[in-house]
Amino acid sequence: MAKAPERITVRKTYKLFIGGAFPRSESGRYTVARDDKGAPVANVCRASRKDLRDAVVAARKAQEGWAKRTAFNRGQILYRMAEMLESRSAVFEAALTAATGLSAKAAEGEVGAAVDRLVWYAGWADKFPQFMGTTNPVASAHFNFTFPEATGVVVAFASEGSALLGLVSAIAPVIVSGNSVVVVVSGPAPTVAMELAEVLATSDLPGGVVNILTGLRDELAPHAARHMDVDGILCVGADDATRKLIGVEAAESVKRVHFEDDGDLSHWHDEARQSPYLIVPFVELKTAWHPMGM
């Protein structure tokens, strides 16, 4: 009997995640993702400003419907994301180990923490409005109350220190209130981000609520900050020059801008990295005057 020929492994093509689909970069460009020892892991798309533009269009289209869903339903969907991530934890542990050189134990810890963080924010979906909303005493016959609403489309530049936990920590607090997000992943393990995109695509999350671009932060940040249809910028671990650039360019359309410190895995494991106050930067507090006692 003839010996079976050796199998050729089928390798995954890492593309972008825009509007629930996985298109290639329109530019045709790519970068080589390398592990901690410098060995190539995969070719990944290097998103262009036109990919960013397309992603913002998809995010804008999805945002209104996402914000209109009940808070409870948004919570359910975040929880579903946690479920899907949990069931694929082995894939993520392997990807993290291959891409960043984490020990098996540390990778297991990071995936577990990412799942838990999603569950944690899922719980806040129908609670943060009570927590942040107020009733205000006023000197007239009105019932005066303030409540938070989603800001709109947010572009997030995710952590370059933690490929999975840092990424989830950028996405969850932004979308839980009803924003849509375009995440730019420029860290050392872009393959992990695109694995997460596959989780999102199967989590009942409407297409376009989360879009993931792999690319260079310095290249995309000015275009994101200038874009008139972007309502907010979250930038994790920006240096002073980037902060200034984003601040100045974002002023033209009065975007909400929020900066956070980056760090290694232990930084992201810290309890302080999950907080309802991280939902606050991308909500609008609106006040209504309701006549009463007349």
Partner: peptide, 8 residues
């Protein structure tokens, strides 16, 4: 030089 929004 800025991508625009039809909200304006």
């Amino acid at each position: 030089g800025r991508y625009q929004s039809d909200r304006y």
